[in-house]
Each structure stands twice: as C-alpha cells, then as structure tokens.
Design a protein around this nucleic acid. Structure first.
Lengths: 117, 117
DNA sequence: TTCGATGTTCGTGAAACATCGAACAAGCTA
DNA sequence: TAGCTTGTTCGATGTTTCACGAACATCGAA
C-alpha cells in the first residue's frame, strides 16, 4: 500500500467535488465524518463489499474531500472541512444541510455509534 | 416535441443536482443563466453538437435546475434559482461562486453577449 | 516464521454517460 | 404545398463508473 495521494487545496476542482458527491454512499461517508472526528476505515459501515468501499473512499480522497492517514496496517479518515471551506466557501455546509434534510446516505453508519447517555 | 417534464421542487434530489453539476458544459450553462434572464436555446453557444447540447439541457431540466418553455418551434431556458434556494439553501450560490472563481464552463457562451456601452 | 487482520489492486461485467451524425417532428414562411 | 428553422430522438461508439470476488501486500501477534 503506497501512501495514497492527496490533492492540494489548489488542485481541487468543482466538478470533481460535485461528481464525488453525486453518489449516496459517498455522501453518507461525508456525513459520518462531518462531526470532525477521525474514523477508522473498518469502523465505517456501508452495504457494499470492501473493495467497493475502498473505491468510494478513493474517489473522495482524489476529489480532496477526505484525508487518509495510515497507521501500521490500519487507515483513518477525516473530512478536509477547513480546506474545502477555503476553496469552496459554503459548499460543504449547504450539501450537508441538504443531505441531512433528505437523509441521503443513511445507509452508511459507523461502529461505536452514539455512546449512550 | 412533447412538452418536457419538469420535476416539482419536492422531487429534487441532492445527488441528482450534484450529478447534473459535475459536467463543465452544464455548469457553463448554469452560469450563463445565472443572471436570471431567460435565454433562447439557439442563443447558447457550446462546443458540442446540438444533440449533445440537447442532452445536457435535458439533464439539467430533469434535475430541476432549469425550466424550459416552448414557444412555437423555439425554446427558452431559465434557471430555477428561487426553487433551488428553497430546496437546497445556499447550494447554488456556493457553486456559482466557485465556478466563477475557477472559470468552470467558460467554453459556454451566449449570442448577443454584453451589449456595448 | 506463520497466521490473522486490514485495505488496496486486479480482472471482470453491467450500467450509465458523453458524444456524434442522421433521421424525425412541429411550427413558421414563402 | 414546399421548404426552412428549431430542437428532440435514435442508434452507434467509446469512456467511465459501480459493483463484486479473488489475489495481493503489509503489519502486528502468536
């Protein structure tokens, strides 16, 4: 596993981001990451094969939406929220709000969900 | 030419809109329409065959981004800006701003450009 | 070193998409 | 009516995307 390429903020493209967010699974992943917490790859729950999830995470990464960090044999993902805000002000917020409203990507979850009160 | 279907505001989907805006030509069309003026189909200038442009306009229409009005044998297109704002607050503004910034869809123009001073 | 866990990559289909030119439909105009 | 204009639709083509399982690479643990 070579160390995955991440585009610089200046390399983000609008159409790239739009394309990345045109799939419900990927929107779901973004929603899961929206609280700013880093998540383990394996903690993501999506109704697709792991190779498919890997593909989706790659698309998100290539578009600049997420950052993947490697630690030993495990991976951790975060949303590049700050950088996106700089490059595309307001875009992510608008998308997240709409996604909540429509419940897009509800099929994506995370292990260790809401810790009980 | 049957009278083209337009989705209701409630039928818009986030992923549909994102997909529609993931193509530079279509973003270009949206930009051209962003001033709120209605434009004639034939006044749109894009570096693609007319059948291709027709396809793109259909995608935009189906996603709810534009409205097409027919008058005799000619068509006029407008951006459904108000309705988009209601359904996806802030989204279109953010996209338009980013598109300007990046000059996405610059290859799309309109006849009868800026009227000289 | 051997095994298990974790992701990525590969090979492969099926489906969707962008594109074109040709054919078509419908309405003006001569 | 004949012809022109304006878009849409059709069929073909090549590309991209999504999906899967299998194989692989890497690391940590036994």
């Amino acid at each position: 596993m070579r160390p995955a390429h991440h585009p610089e903020v200046g390399e983000f493209t609008l159409t790239g981001v739009m394309a990345a967010l045109s799939d419900p699974i990927r929107v779901g992943v973004v929603r899961v990451l929206a609280d700013g917490r880093e998540r383990g790859w394996g903690d993501l729950l999506a109704p697709v094969a792991k190779s498919t999830l890997s593909h989706h995470l790659r698309v998100l990464r290539d578009a600049g939406l997420t950052r993947t960090r490697q630690e030993g044999t495990r991976c951790f993902v975060t949303l590049r929220r700050q950088e996106l805000q700089v490059r595309f002000p307001g875009l992510l917020e608008a998308v997240l709000a709409a996604a909540e409203d429509e419940d897009v990507g509800h099929q994506v979850g995370v292990k260790d969900a809401v810790p009980p009160t």
